[in-house]
Amino acid sequence: MIYRKAVKSAVLSMVSLILLLSLLITSNKANADGVVVDKVYHPYVLPNEREFEWRLLSHQNDNGNSLGQRLAYGQSLTDNIMVEAYIVGERDGDGDFGLSAYEIETRWMITEQGEYWADWGMLFEVEKEHKLDIWEVTTGILFEKEFGRTSLALNAFLIYESGSDIKNEFETEFRLQYRYRWLPQVQPAIEIYTGEDYTGIGPAFMGIHRFDGQKQLKWEAGFITGLNGDSKDHILRVAIEYEF
């Protein structure tokens, strides 16, 4: 048993090392063809968990406003694996809002919360653009560490974009969230996003409201400011999850 845990931990460390090396190797290949700000993932999965999720992303810069929304249904398949399916909608250049992509995402909780120095998980994601031959495959490491009443969550993603409507390339993204667990309903945080020639930072707030049993509502909102030189570059992100 102890040997198995040690091997799991060693494998995890090696995976992290490989991913970090990959990030270093590919860090110069990223092109600016997407939005990095989304959501900072946590490496935890609960069995019997089902959820509906809605996310909104409003990006205001010198070129105007772009809007993206996601609707998702997720369900844990085992004690430590959760699958979530998304449909993504975006407002196009004509101002019409419509379906733009589909996505399937798997989160794997590798370590028990609190068992080791930090908690680890992985994320696998496949996204297909609706009317274009563009595929995006993402692999990521999810990390979380408690410091008293605060929690530091880090996400490091390696993304491969391919298809006839896009130049095949690797991209990397890094997300950070440092959260103060003040009250269940209100937990302030600071978030940092980097990737695709973009760096953004800003405050975020999140909370949870419990109903009966496993039913609970989680909310998140963040206001991220880009640090890349545009005179105006703000992103408002909102996420609401209903777990049942």
Binding site: I2, A6, V7, K8, S9, A10, E115, Y116
Partner: peptide
């Protein structure tokens, strides 16, 4: 591996 043993 050694570090992993130490952590458990």
């Amino acid at each position: 591996t050694l570090m992993s043993f130490l952590t458990i």
